[in-house]
């Protein structure tokens, strides 16, 4: 049994300690907002917060997560109103949406650490893959969430 603190709730999970956190979240806890994309920490679709730091859960053995504060996209805000989610909505960032849980978690962690990130900060923090190509809007939305720029797209 592994005891995990996920989105403020304690979960007892009966799984081998080397099972990646990603699959614990998806298959044992039923939180499917965290996505499988590559399994080798390349794409970032599985990004979650561990004690506020953005990490790729496909490479985190569940056994090492006991006592850590795990936050998933479902726990980022109670009602989807985190400033990053609001900026994403206003600027109409998402296309297919599959990578966006990970993108939003990476962006939220960046803004937590660097409230007014430069373009270079964004380049360094946002290495998640988006195949639809939402990168220009992700950059704009991070600036918008940081209060550096006003949203310009997706009116009406």
């Amino acid at each position: 049994m592994i005891t995990l603190n996920i989105n403020g709730t304690s979960h007892q999970v009966d799984a081998p300690a080397d099972t990646p956190l990603l699959w614990i979240l998806r298959e044992y806890v039923g939180l499917t907002g965290t996505k499988y994309g590559c399994g080798i920490a390349q794409c970032g679709a599985c990004t979650v917060h561990i004690n506020g730091i953005a990490l790729r859960s496909c490479q985190l053995p569940a056994g090492s997560m006991a006592g850590q504060k795990i936050t998933t996209i479902e726990g980022l805000s109670p009602d989807g109103t985190h400033p990053v989610q609001m900026a994403w909505k206003e600027l109409e960032v998402a296309q297919c949406g599959y990578c966006q849980s990970g993108q939003i978690m990476a962006a939220a962690a960046l803004l937590h650490q660097t409230p007014s990130p430069s373009d270079e900060d964004i380049d360094n923090a946002m290495s998640n893959i988006c195949r639809c190509g939402t990168y220009p809007r992700i950059r704009s939305a991070i600036h918008a969430a940081a209060g550096q720029a006003a949203p310009t797209a997706g009116k009406v």
Binding site: G33, E74, G80, W88, V156
Partner: peptide, 13 residues
């Protein structure tokens, strides 16, 4: 340029 109808769930998981 109306907003998409399918955005909400993509931002919350």
């Amino acid at each position: 340029p109306v907003h998409r109808l399918d955005t909400e769930g993509k931002l919350t998981g």
